[in-house]
Each structure stands twice: as C-alpha cells, then as structure tokens.
C-alpha cells in the first residue's frame, strides 16, 4: 500500500513538470507585456523578444497623460462600481423571489432570463443602441451602468437563484414564524447568507465590466472607459506595441490585484453556485 502511494507520488511529480511549463506559459504574457512597455517603439521593432536593456518609463507617462488614460480610469472605476453594486442588488432580489418565494410564472421568468443569456451582443447591436437613445441613456455614465447591468444580469440572476435554492428552507420558515416581513428577510437573511455567491458575482462582474469594450463604445461615446482608451491605442495601421503594453499594464493592474486578493473566495463562491446538491 505504501508502495502504491509512493508510486502515485512519483507520478504526480512527473506530471508537475508539464504543468509547470504551462504555468510558465501563462506567466509569460505578463513578463512580455511589462518588458515591451519598457522599450521604445523603435527598440521594439528591432528586437521584439529580447530583454529591455535600456528601460524607459516614457510609455507609461504617455499612456497615462497624453492618451488620457488617467481621465478614462475614473470613468471605468465609477461605472464598474456602480454596475457591480446594481447587479448584486437586482440579482439578489430576483434570486430571492425566484428561488424562495416562488410564484405563478416564476419558472417562465427564469426561462426568459436564461434565454437572454444566449443572445450574442452582436445580434442586438443596432436595436440595443436605438433603445438606449430612445431612453436618453446615451453618453451618460448612468446609462452605461444600466446597460452593463442589463447585459450581465442573466448570469447573475441564474447564479443567485441556484444559490438560494440550495439554502435550507428552515432558515426562512423560522424567520416567517418570527413575523419578519419579506424585505426584512431579504435584508437580514438573504444578503448575509448569500455572501459567497455575491462575492463571486462581484469579482466576475468587475472583470466583465472592467474589460468590456463593445457596450462601452456604444453607450459612452464622449467620455470613454479605460478599455476603449486602450483599444484606441491600436491605430488604423500601426500599433505602437510598447505604448499599448504600458496601457494594458495600467489597466490590468487593478484587476490582477483584486484577483489575487479574492482568489479563494471566487473558488468557493462558484462551488456553491454551480454544484447541485
């Protein structure tokens, strides 16, 4: 038996080598991006893979100031925070209603929300834009917050519903005996109990909103978010890769930091959302 275990250990060690190579490949882009950001445009064209021997920080300041990423940064932060909070609010309410309260038509509503999950953005581009105009939501950060909420809502509602459906019903039955109203139950029980799923959704939606390009391009035409600013660094013909790389470093840094902090919670949050008991 010990022999079996030893053999397994050896197998695992052997397997960890290709896995480490894969891990290196996953880290490489980050190294490449930072390295490229430290080169001049000419230096990059002449030597794309080599180490930046004479590092320059000019790209960072150019991206931040001249390419106005500093200005776009604020937009991205405001819009992302706003949309994520709104998403959490709306989806936890909906999940509560769909999973716990259950009413006539709740299955139909759940199906509608799931169907909308399957609609690719490209399919609804023009009509979506016209809807936004009709509601006078174009060119306002509030409009973008609402647009993000609408686009990322189906998945969030699904996850919250799945999560709440799995909580022991005794919890709410006890609350009902206490005579607590629905709003109080949501506030005092559903929100705290939903924390793992809410954290997961918070992280995922932050990622989606922060990295979104298309919706933001359409809705916030005059103010721009960070990703749009980065995309615009790609010219018609030329891409100044070092400048682009510097922009990407600046834009990805907050996300990478958030991910590192919440890594554990994402895992446990997804687990509760996705596993059927």
């Amino acid at each position: 038996m010990a022999a079996v275990e030893r053999k397994q250990k050896r197998v695992l060690w052997a397997i960890s080598i290709p896995m480490a190579i894969l891990a290196l490949s996953a880290v490489y882009p980050i190294f490449f991006t930072i390295n490229a950001a430290l080169k001049t445009r000419k230096g990059f064209v002449l030597d794309r893979f080599g180490l930046a021997t004479d590092p320059t920080f000019a790209n960072f300041s150019q991206a931040w100031n001249q390419s106005r990423l500093s200005e776009y940064f604020t937009n991205s932060v405001v819009v992302t925070i706003g949309a994520v909070l709104l998403l959490l609010l709306v989806s936890s309410l909906a999940g509560y209603a769909l999973a716990i309260l259950r009413f006539r038509g709740s299955k139909l509503i759940f199906t509608i929300i799931l169907v909308s999950l399957m609609i690719p953005v490209q399919v609804v581009l023009v009509p979506f834009y016209r809807t936004m105009i009709a509601l006078d939501l174009i060119n306002s950060r509030a409009g973008l917050i609402i647009a993000y909420t609408a686009f990322f809502l189906p998945f969030s509602v699904y996850l919250m519903t799945a999560f709440y459906a799995r909580l022991p019903r005794e919890l709410f039955e006890a609350a009902q005996i206490d005579g607590a109203g629905l709003v109080q139950v949501w506030w005092h029980i559903m929100l705290p109990m939903g924390k793992p799923a809410l954290i997961t959704l918070g992280i995922l939606n932050t990622l989606y909103c922060w990295n979104d390009l298309l919706i933001s391009l359409l809705v916030l035409q005059d103010q721009r978010t960070l990703m749009v600013g980065i995309a615009a660094l790609r010219g018609e013909y030329t891409t100044n890769v070092p400048l682009l790389a510097a922009g990407i470093c600046l834009a990805a840094a907050p996300i990478v930091i958030i991910y590192m902090i919440f890594q554990r919670q994402i895992v446990s949050g997804i687990a509760v959302g996705a596993v059927k008991g």
């Binding site: 709306v90 989806s91 309410l93 909906a94 509560y96 209603a97 769909l98 309260l101 259950r102 009413f103 709740s106 509503i109 509608i112 929300i113 169907v115 909308s116 609609i119 399919v123 609804v124 023009v126 009509p127 979506f128 016209r130 809807t131 509601l135 609402i146 647009a147 909420t149 609408a150 686009f151 809502l153 189906p154 509602v157 629905l182 949501w186």
Partner: peptide
C-alpha cells in the same frame, strides 16, 4: 415577490429581448 423580480425582468426584456425582436 413580483416586485422583487421586476427590476431584473424589466432590464432583461427592455435591453435584450426587445432588441432581439427588433433585430
């Protein structure tokens, strides 16, 4: 309960289902 689910439903119908039918 309908009230709770309403914001989600309105958003989804207005910005996803209606554009789909429009398209």
């Amino acid at each position: 309960a309908y009230l709770f689910v309403l914001p989600a439903l309105v958003l989804v119908i207005l910005f996803r289902i209606v554009p789909l039918i429009w398209g």
